[in-house]
Amino acid sequence: MPATTRTFHDRLQVVLEDHVAEVTLQRADRHNAMDSPMIDALLEAQTWLGEQVGVRAVVLCGDGESFCSGLDVAGIVSSPERVAWLLTSDGTSMNPAQRLALGWRNLSAPVVAALHGHVYGAGLQMALAADIRIIHPDANLALPEIEWGLMADMGITVTSAALRQDVIRDLMLTGRHMSGEEAVILGLASRLDDEPLLAASELAQAIARRSPRAVAAARRLLREAPELSESQRLAREAELQRNLLGGPEQREATRARLEGRPPRF
């Protein structure tokens, strides 16, 4: 697919090339803190990506010294109507603040987050919605909302469901900071890398080379499984596999393996 570049509100750039979308937060002078234009940019980019045909993987990253230092609280709180809008349901089961995180989780393509520098508040909550998180050892993570008399609320009950709840409570109730190295040890991040963006890009490209139907089925299975009984999980697993077996992408994957060439999907 031809390369496409889109900029949203001078706060976010999306480069779509070879089935991989690289989404870069671009407010480096403020460690990519989310002000109103960036919030609008993130929500609009999610919608735009959802409309693009052929996106097979997404890389979520931040320009400059940090991934994202959270909400620009002073700017957001100064506009009471903006706060009310963020916390009001948009006609679905979530409000715009929750969609800032869950919108990435709900994309049809896997999302790989490349984390470095400050990963605070809304930034960390957004990162938790990614399928995979690659993090610099010296990154600094925190959920400091409690210091403002608030709590982390951007869908964190959904994004943290598969994580250790004692670790989430520790972060939410104290606001303490942890390093990227500790985040991997405690299961908040997938793995360490001194160049997380490069590693995330390589991983996304590897995913994009796989059967899109198989990738989608695997994500669907893992997403649905926690809500099912053991027998239902096994039945759903078998159903999804039957839908892949003998299909055009599965046949092409097999041919490519036998012929020693990259598959063409």
Rank of each mutant, 00 (worst) to 15 (best):
Q165E: 02
E147G: 05
L203N: 04
L128M: 06
A45R: 05
G70Y: 00
L49S: 11
R11G: 06
S108P: 06
R164K: 06
E81M: 10
R176H: 01
E22R: 11
I185R: 14
E51L: 15
G121C: 09
S190Y: 04
L245V: 15
L222V: 14
L25A: 11
R219T: 13
A200Y: 07
R236P: 09
G260Y: 06
I135K: 00
L234M: 11
N106Q: 12
D40P: 05
A129Q: 01
R176Q: 00
S211D: 11
A238I: 06
A113F: 03
G70E: 00
T254I: 14
Q165F: 01
A225D: 10
R210G: 12
M34W: 15
L60T: 08
P2C: 07
L245K: 15
M38R: 05
S231G: 10
E195G: 10
F8S: 05
A152M: 03
G117M: 04
G155V: 01
H136M: 02
V55T: 13
S93D: 13
R27N: 15
S89C: 04
A183P: 04
I76P: 03
G103D: 04
A28D: 14
E259V: 08
L245N: 14
R219A: 10
E145H: 02
R99M: 02
L100D: 01
L228P: 08
P80Y: 05
R220H: 13
T254C: 12
A256V: 09
R223D: 10
T92F: 01
E259I: 08
S211N: 09
G260F: 07
I156K: 01
L143Y: 00
V77S: 05
A122G: 03
D29L: 10
Q205E: 15
E145R: 00
T5F: 06
G64K: 10
L115I: 01
A21H: 13
G117F: 02
T5E: 13
E145G: 00
N32P: 07
W85Q: 07
Q250R: 13
R105D: 06
P212N: 13
R261I: 15
Q125M: 11
A152Q: 01
E81V: 10
A208W: 07
T5H: 08
P263M: 15
N140Y: 00
L25M: 13
